[in-house]
Amino acid sequence: MEHTRRDFLTTGASGLGVAWLATRMPLFEATARLAHDSRASGAFTVLTPEEAAELEAVAETIIPAVDDLPGAKDAGVIHFIDRAFETFQAGGLGAAREGLAGLQERVEARFPGAGPFSRLSGPRRAEVLREVENGGFFGTMRFLTVAGMFSMPSYGGNEGKLGWKLLGFEDRFAWQPPFGYYDAQVNRG
């Protein structure tokens, strides 16, 4: 849990909100534990390890780690994707498998013997993905990568809240002014 109970009580929330947050702490903590447990096993539910490795490479090409920023792999987005294909995206698993097979054929055609996709260098991966970026497989993978990067960690992705760190979003849910540079400037007079 990134924000401790003490953080919650001292980050400026006033009066009733603080008392109310205190009553909610057990819930926040339970949610965080649940999220941690679900990834600790490392196993996938619907994806094979090979499929997971390939789809993770696709996700990492969509949101790569650049500069010192976290990427989709750092944030464990593949675990979100696995769970999505088990639940709300279950109807799309077959199409995703077909899409992945099609992608590997393109890898083989463009870089014979260099595949599968996950073994390619970053620029080569991007080159192959650019060929399919207007297709359904890529659209699904982009949506799932973004959703897995920025949804609550309890869904399996956004591990360590790294997706939110990429954005600069903080899940404190209780703030006091100043909120940003420009209102701080005005309030200082």
Partner: peptide
Amino acid sequence: PIMFGLGGLPSDAPSWGPEYARMLSEYF
């Protein structure tokens, strides 16, 4: 956050890849 990742950047921005990741970090 999810909405921003899906459509918060200008329409001429890349929608995936290294520059997309950099822009998410800068723009959000």
